[in-house]
Design a protein around this nucleic acid. Structure first.
Length: 426
RNA sequence: GUGAGAGUAGCUCAACUGGCAGAGCGCUGGACUGUGGCUCCAGUGGUUGGGGGUUCGAGUCCCCUCUCUCACCCCA
């Protein structure tokens, strides 16, 4: 088994037919919901100029520092497999002169060179939305509510929106230095010893220290981010919450919530499920008012989120057993096989999933294969049937057989599909 | 990058302190020659991830290596 010569690269996944069908169903639901909120879908290239990600995500973030798949072409240009969707979408928004206000959505695979674990892969799929050119608490709230309802519709349970305002970039900067002053002072007078992780965090993202399991509790008297927010920022945040209240979104204010990408400001949020032991984030997002300008466009505020498709599937779905061909054509001998080949061709012109055995096999063996493939009905063709100008249709679940003219195969198929509709529990 | 666990048949897993590598499922065929599932019978299955070492003898002990999984970090 482990003598296999080639295996998939670490952290990548094969989506086998069973999961493929499940994803199709989920994605259809997601697309329908997102369109209902007025978004249009786009697809950007799988790779971009490396610079785009460094500029947008921030050069001292984990993603840029150690998780990007970067390569060079023959002329030495540096490209990177997209690690996230927001920067490419904004780039495309600018490059195609799309006019704000614009609501763009995407379903794209992302690439990050992390150590894989549950719900976390090196290639993974994100569904994301970006509302570009609108700055009003109403849109922030709507974006959050949309993510919340979509997750709910997808069957995610015990959802909680964690929400915070991290203020404007200037406000956050002021807070950051106040926090650093506080930490340095405590360290110098010996009342505080940070863990190794937090020593690293100090340079990279000091706000995260407050959330550290080891050091966090020691910092009860540290300055609070909220104290550094302007009245305007606070009011904006309050308004968002009042909409969420009105729409009965289950949220919790999380003063320590910060985002790992540099471009966020003001609203930051995550949606987690309390059903999952390790509180993995199902969806994360926030407001980013300076990104469009940073990427060379006019000053344009924006807000958005992304959700991880694999996490939804991992935590809330079983990979279903899928049904095989609707009709499995079985033949009695070489003579009827010739006839069956023509019949199969007709069934396929009707676009009904169907199959047969190609090598000669006994009828018994053919039936066995039909069963194993989980076919819905077997169509048995032998000399008797040909003589009568009919086919024998056996329901593989009930074992009931009917003798009908060929053209009835369409009717039987349609009736069965109609019967199943709505009952499809994936 | 750090830490923990696991690799035995196609799959899920056994094999006491080192002593002949096994079972179930699957697969093929038959009982039932124009009918699947259930039952019974027979057959099919392996370089125990790879390399080295200790030993009369290694799936089992030691070292190296590869792969996978989980957790931390970080994130979707």
């Amino acid at each position: 088994m482990n003598t296999l010569k080639y295996k998939r690269p670490k952290g990548t996944r094969d989506i086998i037919p069973e999961e493929f069908e499940l994803r199709e169903v989920l994605l259809e639901k997601i697309k329908k919901s997102i369109r209902a909120y007025g978004y249009k879908f786009i697809i950007t290239p799988t790779f971009e100029h490396t610079e785009l990600f460094i500029r947008s995500i921030g050069d001292s973030t984990d993603i840029v520092e150690k998780e990007m798949y970067t390569f060079h072409d023959k002329k030495g240009r540096s490209y990177t497999l997209r690690p996230e969707g927001t920067a490419p979408v904004i780039r495309a928004f600018l490059e195609n002169s799309i006019m704000p206000p614009a609501k763009l959505a995407y379903i794209m695979n992302m690439f990050r060179a992390e150590r894989p674990q549950k719900g976390r892969y090196r290639e993974f799929w994100q569904v994301g939305v970006e509302a570009i050119g609108i700055k009003d608490p109403l849109i922030d709230a709507e974006v959050i509510e949309m993510g919340y309802s979509i997750l709910k519709e997808l069957g995610a349970e015990k959802l909680v929106v964690l929400i915070n305002s991290i203020g404007s970039i200037e406000e956050r900067q002021a807070y950051k230095s106040a926090l650093l002053d506080y930490l340095n002072e405590k360290e110098q007078d010996g009342t505080l010893e940070l863990c190794n992780d937090c020593k690293r965090r100090k340079n990279r993202n000091p706000l995260r220290i407050l959330d550290c399991k080891i050091d966090g509790p020691k910092l009860k008297d540290a300055p609070k981010l909220k104290e550094f927010l302007s009245n305007e920022s606070l009011k904006y945040f309050e308004e968002i919450k009042s909409y969420l209240d009105k729409w009965k979104v289950n949220y919790r204010e999380e003063p320590r919530l910060v985002r790992g990408l540099d471009y966020y400001n003001h609203t930051a949020f995550e949606i987690v499920s309390e059903k999952i032991g390790v509180e993995d984030t199902l969806l994360g997002g926030g407001r980013y008012d300076s990104l469009v300008e940073d990427l060379g466009g006019p000053a344009t505020p924006a807000v958005g989120w992304a959700l991880g498709l694999e996490r939804i599937i991992n935590y809330f779905y079983q990979i279903p057993r899928i049904s095989g061909p609707f009709y499995f054509v079985a033949t009695v001998n070489e003579f009827s096989k010739g006839y069956a080949i023509g019949l199969l061709k007709k069934i396929r012109e009707w676009k009904i999933p169907s199959d047969m055995t190609y090598e000669p096999k006994s009828l018994k063996a053919q039936m066995k294969i039909a069963d194993r493939l989980n076919a819905v009905k077997a169509v048995i063709v032998g000399e008797d049937e040909i003589k009568l100008q009919k086919v024998r249709v056996r329901d593989l679940e009930t074992g009931k057989e009917v003798l009908v003219p060929e053209k009835d195969l369409v009717k039987i198929y349609e009736e069965e599909m109609a019967r199943r509709k709505g009952k499809e529990v994936l």
